[in-house]
Design a protein around this nucleic acid. Structure first.
Lengths: 213, 213
DNA sequence: ATTTGAATGTGATTTAAATCACCGATCCTA
DNA sequence: TAGGATCGGTGATTTAAATCACATTCAAAT
């Protein structure tokens, strides 16, 4: 039983307000920390538990079956959980996603057994899980929209906004190539569009860094 | 209490095997039928219950916020449920999708209250719901992959396969324009690609109809 | 301080698909 | 059966982005 966990839950998961559930999380949960860039879970690995993010920002991507190209699914920040992982461990199947820490991050891992039991015992847990499924689903559909309908310039802008939100900072630390990968675009196209944004005065470009204005 | 429902459940939802759950579904559920092309649920409407598909094929699409373009999300067939609807009614919010009957279809509607209660009482129901969330999620991600990585010819072929599977038939009854809408492409492009497929001997083209060979 | 490799900038070319502009064929209905 | 509407076919043009081919800039290591 880890009292630190209780305060994390109170801070970031207000919905999970039953004291006995909070105690359950504090007893069953394990805190894990990841450095920026560190891979939390890779393709093909078994998921040992449900992750509750308490600090930082997690990037969730999926790898294409044929090629080894990636699709960015979404970012997770404090107060959120990964529904994909959730269903993975419910179904006891291998992960088809990869999660990496975008920033230094802290996560509470809830072993499957508890996550599952609580679905019947705690309405608030059940609700939390359902709500989280729902919002992940919404995210996915929005991403779909975006890829289907929008042109690169708008997608890039949306992406910069999303990342800035996930980090809660106005500067984004990565190379044009990395951004191009996330958007499934060419590095040149991204460089040119970023230049345009810079000319418009929306951003400032530095090496390995983009500052939103 | 409707004995017809029990047999539908036994036939198509084998996972839901507890007799008391089956009886619950038979008591609480309402059978609704829809003709081909009929709109089952529209954008913005409140979702009154969870739909279990027992016959036919349901098309689930989402409308873009800005333009009024549509994205095809997936097809549902007998034995499946719409997670989107599920979360909609759990959250008691308006639908952001539209579902239409692709074929003449039959659906059992489970009122929210029961669908929700059963989450705690019946592990098999809970599992069914979770599994369904999972597979819808998978579908979405696959669609995402497809839009992000594949070229029109391949997407078209996948689409034809998917529709043929959903209908369980080797002929597809729609116009090139309708297919173009689903794939978010131009009618001309689809016509040309279909012609190519015909030349390769994969399909035969008729007015309003495509036959897979 | 010089090298070396990664990050970025930029022009030229190619490509998939959208768009535009029209055609004829087929169906429906008055 | 005549006439409009819908469906499908096809060429020409335009467009967004990928790709190719470099040049430049920067930062860190030798």
């Amino acid at each position: 039983m880890n009292p630190e966990i209780i305060s994390f839950v109170k801070d970031h998961f207000t919905e999970l307000s039953e004291p006995s559930l909070q105690e359950g999380i504090a007893s069953a949960g394990v805190i894990r920390e990841f450095k920026e860039g560190e891979v939390i879970m890779n393709f093909g690995s078994f998921v040992k538990g449900v992750p509750l993010v308490v600090k930082g920002s997690i990037k969730v991507v999926r790898e294409d079956e044929e090629d080894n190209r990636e699709v960015l699914l979404y970012f997770l920040k404090a107060g959120e959980t990964c529904s994909m992982s959730f269903s993975c461990c419910m179904m006891e199947k291998r992960s088809d996603i990869r999660t990496t820490a975008e920033d230094d991050s802290k996560i509470i891992i809830i072993p499957i057994k508890y996550a599952n039991d609580w679905m019947s015992t705690y309405p608030s847990w059940r609700n939390f899980v359902m709500r989280s499924y729902d919002s992940r689903m919404q995210e996915l559909v929005k991403t779909l929209d975006s890829i289907a309908f929008k042109k690169m310039d708008e997608r890039l802008w949306d992406y910069l906004m999303k990342r800035s939100k996930a980090h809660n900072a106005k500067s984004i630390h990565s190379t044009h190539q990395e951004i191009a990968n996330d958007l499934n675009a060419s590095r040149e196209a991204i460089s040119r569009l970023l230049k345009q944004l810079e000319k418009k005065g929306s951003i400032a470009l530095e090496r390995n860094k983009i500052v939103l204005l």
